[in-house]
Amino acid sequence: MVAIVDYNAGNTRSLQFALDRLGVNSSLTSNIEEIQSAEKIIFPGQGAALNAMQNLKKKGLDKIIPNLKQPVLGICLGMQLLCRSTEEGNIDCLDIISTDVKKISNKVKVPHMGWNNISNLKSQLFNNVIDNEFMYLVHSFYVPIIPETIAESNYNGFFSVAIQKNNFYGVQFHPEKSSKPGIKILENFLTI
């Protein structure tokens, strides 16, 4: 069973449908026991970081998530919350990956919205995904290139479009909205 962490952080319907199409059982839940006992955990996110962190704290999930031992996939804001802090509201995040999330420069349009290519792919998450494949992104903050970077993209310079530390994976793009290659990445995560 795949647990999708429910903390009122945006639209998870597409993600649930994508998992349905893969024939995978999923449950949208904030129940701590259910999350802890799931085989895989997807940590989605959209909207504002401050609200998201407050909701996680209210549900006690900020203490649970960093201690999970099974594969965890943070998507979009979910990936950013795995980091130490974010310039979005200047708040502390879960600090699973010790890096700080930065604001995209106003020299380019913000949000970075649309399809961009991902390269330098370094994880089984990208099995059978070609270098420079396109993914759909929409974000105003970014994770810089760090030792945990497993894929990068370029928007006013290179940034981390995917990161990994131990059992924690994060992708800035929306695999559930990135056509067949995105669904392949979701499928790869489920087989880790």
Binding site: R13, S14, F17, A18, D20, R21, Y136, H174, E176, K177, S178, S179, K180, G182, I183
Partner: peptide, 11 residues
């Protein structure tokens, strides 16, 4: 909208 979301994998 629900039917579209169920089958579509682009935004």
């Amino acid at each position: 909208v629900l039917d579209v979301a169920a089958s579509l994998d682009i935004p």
